[in-house]
């Protein structure tokens, strides 16, 4: 072995004074910086915060008891259609205040949206990570299940669930979660297949780290950004579908206020009292637009691969 003189030793001190390539910016500060620079992200974010505030403080924001029926106020028009401020968005066929019901309905929509996506993320990413990391028969089994799921008409699936478990909040949540877990399974599987070959995962493997630990500590954190983007956009999808199923009578059952149920109620009076559908319709529109704006921003920022051109 040729032993060099002082030059070897020089290589040790050499690195110490190397320039710092880049300042590290904590994730939350990067998020705020990016958000400030994006009108799309900022407007979506502000609207979402407002919707969440309404959800949290709904008991204090409702001007009326949402279930109180005042016969005299049946079909009271909204302010902008000749009505009074007592019923800002008008009243329905039973004389209930629409604004109050829309506000209470926020709770249902947000709860369903978050719960469904949470369940789908947990189930989907676990199965996806297992599928991608271990491959082989496990992978084939999980992916065939996913294919089967995707080829199954969603409405039919929802009807089957309602038939088996009876309509209600939890059947709805489970039916919707079953419908979208595949997205996460596929996303996480694909990313895992890529990450598994990356050298830092191989390094962990060669150190002797357990597979489960590698998945939890190395793979999932690196899939997280794409997953958050997808989850955000899916919440909007779930809220719209919750309304659609409830409209069809397959979801939330009256008297629990739900935007979908309210629209269904309003359908019969569409020509005489359009405001019965207008209130909940606007609520759905605003919420889903807000989430989509914010989700698009997240995608542009954290997952440029998926960004639309």
């Amino acid at each position: 072995m040729s032993v060099a003189d002082g030059t070897r030793a020089a290589s040790f001190v050499a690195a110490a004074d190397e320039v710092l390539v880049e300042e590290h910016v904590p994730a939350w500060r990067k998020f705020l910086d990016e958000l400030r620079g994006s009108s799309k992200g900022l407007s979506g974010f502000v609207m979402i915060v407002l919707v969440l505030l309404v959800t949290a403080f709904s008991p204090y924001l409702m001007p009326h008891d949402p279930t109180e029926q005042i016969i005299a106020h049946r079909f009271a028009p909204p302010v902008f259609d000749g009505g009074t401020y007592e019923h800002f968005l008008g009243a329905d066929n039973l004389g209930r205040d629409i604004l109050s019901r829309v506000i209470l309905g926020t709770q249902t929509s947000i709860a369903v949206g978050f719960l469904v996506v949470l369940i789908a993320v947990v189930v989907g990413s676990t199965l996806g990570a297992i599928s991608g990391y271990f491959g082989g028969y496990v992978d084939t089994a999980i992916m065939r299940l996913a294919d089967f799921q995707l080829s199954f008409p969603f409405i039919l699936l929802a009807i089957i669930f309602m038939a088996i478990f009876g309509p209600g909040f939890w059947s709805l949540v489970v039916a919707l979660a079953v419908a979208i877990w595949v997205n996460y399974a596929r996303l996480v599987r694909g990313e895992t297949l890529k990450l598994r070959e990356l050298e830092f995962v191989q390094a962990a493997h060669s150190i002797g780290v357990r597979d489960a630990t590698i998945i939890v500590r190395h793979i999932l954190p690196n899939v997280m950004p794409s997953m958050v983007v997808m989850a955000t956009l899916d919440i909007a999808w779930v809220i719209i579908f919750e309304a659609a199923l409830s409209f069809l009578g397959l979801g939330i059952q009256p008297p629990t206020p739900s935007w979908g149920v309210m629209i269904a109620d309003g359908r019969n009076y569409l020509f005489e009292s359009h405001w019965m559908t207008l209130g909940p319709g606007l609520a759905i529109l605003i919420t889903s637009v807000a989430i989509n704006l914010f989700g698009d921003f997240l995608r542009d920022t954290y997952d440029p691969k998926q960004a639309r051109l």
């Binding site: 050298e199 060669s206 150190i207 190395h218």
Partner: peptide, 23 residues
């Protein structure tokens, strides 16, 4: 047993940008 014994054989990799977990 293999996991325990892995400490005897260690590796350095080609790509310095992929061999360290960015997070």
């Amino acid at each position: 047993a293999l996991r325990r014994a892995r400490r005897n054989v260690q590796m350095i990799f080609q790509n310095p940008y992929a061999s360290l977990d960015p997070r």
